[in-house]
Structure formats: C-alpha cells, structure tokens
Amino acid sequence: MEEGGGSPHRNRALHRPSPSFRLRSPSLNTVRLRRVFDLFDQNGDGEITVDELALALDRLGLGADPDELASTVAIYIPPGRAGLAFDDFEALHRSLGDALFGAADPGDEKAAAAAAAAEEEEQDMREAFRVFDEDGDGFISAAELQVVLAKLGLPEARNIGRVHEMICSVDQDRDGRVDFREFKHMMQGISVWGA
C-alpha cells in the first residue's frame, strides 16, 4: 500500500481517456460540453478563468500543475479577456480530443449524422414495440397483437388463428412470441419492401 492510503492504480486510470470524451453526435457533445462549462464557471460570468479550471480539476481529483495549466489554457484565451468563453473552451476541448484520439476525420460528421439517424430509428422502433408489448414483458404475444389489431380496426383481429400466423411469420426462435430483435427485423423488412 502506498503512503497516504492511495491506490497504486489510481494515477494510471487518470491517464486513460474516457471513451465518452468525444461523442459521435456533435450536437450531444456540445450540450454535454456546455454543462461542463457551466459547472466550471463558478461565478457565472460566462468565462472560465485558469483559477476556476484549476479548482474544478482539483475537485475532480485531477489536480494539475498551475503553471502548466496556465500555459496550456493561455493560447485559447483571446487578448483582453480574463478567461475562456464557451467557444474558447470548446476549441480547447477539441484540441485535447485531437491530441488524445487523433484529429477528427472529416467523414466523422457524416458518420455522426448516420449514427444519430440510426439512434433515432432505434428509439422509434422501441416506442412502436412498446405499443404492442402491453404488459411490458419484452415480448409481443398473439393476444397482445390481437388487441392492437382490434384497436386499429383491422379485420385480422377477429381470427386468432390468423394472428398466430402473423406471429409465426416473424418468430425466428419459434417460441410463440415476438421479441424486440424479431420485431425490428420485421419492421426493417417492411421499410425496405415499402421503399
């Protein structure tokens, strides 16, 4: 055990960048970064001074040498200002991200947009799945499908045999019900077929 009771692994963990440092979605990254900026801006004046940044890092257990911190941050503070405005803080964050992970690929924005669209599609499918999964057990049973079909006024709802056939047509693991993966596969098939 080290003197002072600290863990020998603690400092090594601080040097590994968090996978969440740079999010795939630029808009989510900006929102998250704005929250961090507001937390660091102790007096709420719209600027983070080197002292405020040092205090925040110290509270997070990431104490930095004040002189090194000042020299690193100084290049991002425009002349005549006491600290980093949000845009300056964002530039500092981007620069640190580039240093830790390499420069962002210009294709990242396209990939981020595609990832955001895929995430939105996934959320929409989960919401649709919850409409069918009335008891919230993670499966759509024939009885649940029949109820939804009846609410939609579809004639298939009158015949439970037809409802079972509908379930069987997408029930890949043959357990008599549809899980989210099977539902998603079915919905993607409909989207492609209908396009």
Rank of each mutant, 00 (worst) to 15 (best):
G5C: 09
V147N: 08
I160S: 13
T49R: 07
A103L: 02
E90K: 15
V192G: 08
S191E: 15
T72S: 03
A56R: 02
E109K: 13
A111M: 12
D171K: 10
F129N: 05
N29R: 15
R181S: 13
L60V: 09
E2P: 04
G46Y: 08
E144M: 03
A56N: 03
N43Y: 04
L39C: 10
G189S: 05
P155R: 14
L84G: 00
E165Y: 07
Q188K: 12
R16Y: 09
L53G: 00
A54W: 01
P106Y: 00
V50A: 01
M187E: 07
L154W: 08
E122D: 14
M1P: 07
S71V: 06
G80F: 03
L152Y: 05
M125S: 09
E144L: 03
F183T: 05
F37L: 06
A85Y: 04
G6N: 13
Q42Y: 06
R16L: 07
V50F: 01
R94H: 02
D45M: 10
M1L: 12
Q188H: 11
G4L: 07
A104H: 10
V147L: 03
D124S: 12
L55M: 12
L100V: 05
A104T: 14
R94D: 00
Q172E: 15
D108P: 04
V50N: 02
S25F: 01
L152M: 12
R22N: 08
G153T: 07
D133I: 02
G61F: 02
P66Q: 00
G6L: 12
G61D: 05
H185W: 12
E121Q: 13
A128V: 09
V73C: 00
R10N: 11
A54D: 01
A70R: 01
E127M: 14
D175N: 15
W193N: 15
A91P: 12
L14E: 12
D108V: 05
S27C: 09
A114D: 13
L62Y: 01
L39N: 12
S95G: 10
W193Y: 15
A195T: 14
D51W: 08
G176E: 06
E109H: 13
V170M: 11
L149N: 10
H9M: 14
P26A: 05
G194S: 15
M125N: 10
G83R: 10
R59N: 12
M186S: 08
A115H: 09
L152T: 11
I190C: 06
S169R: 15
H9T: 12
D105E: 08
R59V: 06
A56Y: 01
G80S: 04
S95P: 06
S95K: 01
G63H: 06
G44C: 03
R24P: 04
N29E: 15
A91I: 03
L14F: 09
L69A: 03
I167H: 08
G46T: 11
N11T: 14
R162K: 14
A74N: 06
A64C: 11
V192A: 15
D133R: 00
G4C: 03
D173I: 05
D87K: 14
Q123S: 14
T30G: 08
A143T: 13
S20C: 13
A82C: 05
